[in-house]
Nucleic acid binder design. Structure first.
Lengths: 172, 172
DNA sequence: CGCGGATCGTTACACTGTAACAGGCAGGGC
DNA sequence: GCCCTGCCTGTTACAGTGTAACGATCCGCG
């Protein structure tokens, strides 16, 4: 569907968080605590799905995840991945990017209640997750004014991330 | 995919705008002016696609539109509808609801530059489009702070609209 | 008339997501 | 121990969403 990679699928830490194994370990630890506390089952499939999503620096489709989880002779069906993703999204460990039909790891420790803003770069395909109390407040005001009771919020901005703007400037 | 209809697919004017033929005529007129001004072709397929989307009180999938445009012996393929929808969304006449893979008519005269907030009701499936300068400001601030250059914005809130909350109160 | 550009019809295909059913596995009560 | 129950997973099948590619048609323009 797309190629990307202009500023590299891994390794660019634009902002606060670092991608890669460190974040993966954090997320897995959080998932284990959460499962412990709530009496849920953090199964192998769910853990491996979370790991695959966390390792990647860009949104992954369910079928991409299935492919990465598959080994010669041991194929993982997409439907299983969807079920694992249902679990992970339900508990705020990964997010679904509606405009891409793809999934990214949750980069904040926020409870499932809060809502995030996703910054999706068209050049490199990376996704940054930020939280703004100010945006939430103005959203809440608008919703209250419309008499609308929100259940879930989707805020996705497509554009060009800072790193890619810099790269483009150099090339010109 | 879903049934809806709890508060009726048509006829509930919650707020400012009225659905139905009046809005349809407005939109078509706007499209004709726009095509005139920019030297674009507002073809029959595009007009009929716009009409179908405008008449419906809820988001329509591309295949639903194709079905409504088809007559016995004169089938309209989904791919043609997609091309018409590309044209219509590009020029701000309809909006795509990313979380539903569906399309709604634009209910504001805003230029394609501004961004809208969509309130999607889980009970009746209706979609309200509102604009809030306050939300735009806080979004802009957050984006500027992140060094992110936005190209398009998606803000979709799922929940329960005022009308459906009222209905539910009555039934309880 | 010939040419170029845009639109549209058609086919084929890839990707996304879910329904339904069967097997496996762990824990709880007897 | 044994069965029963509930949850998770595997498998198949299918519905829904979206695009690529090619050809035909239409239309304005030189």
């Amino acid at each position: 569907m797309d190629e990307h990679g202009t500023c590299g699928p891994h390794g660019h830490a634009h902002g606060q968080e670092a991608h890669g194994p460190a974040r993966t370990a954090d997320l897995v630890a959080r998932a284990e605590r959460l499962a412990q506390d709530l009496g849920l089952q953090f199964t192998t499939l769910r853990r491996r799905t979370l790991e695959v999503v966390a390792e990647e620096g860009r949104p992954l489709g369910a079928y991409d995840i299935a492919e990465r989880l598959s080994a010669p002779g041991k194929r993982v069906a997409a439907v299983s991945v969807y079920r694992a993703l249902d679990f992970l999204t339900e508990h705020g460990l990964v997010h679904r990017i509606a405009s891409r039909n793809a999934f990214v790891p949750c980069e904040h420790g926020h409870g499932a209640g809060e809502s995030a803003v996703f910054l999706i770069c068209r050049s490199c395909g990376s996704v940054d997750e930020t939280i703004s109390a100010e945006i939430e407040r103005s959203l809440d005001r608008t919703l209250a004014q419309a008499g609308f009771k929100p259940a879930s919020r989707i805020v996705e901005i497509e554009g060009e991330c800072g790193a890619c703007q810099g790269q483009r400037d150099i090339r010109l």
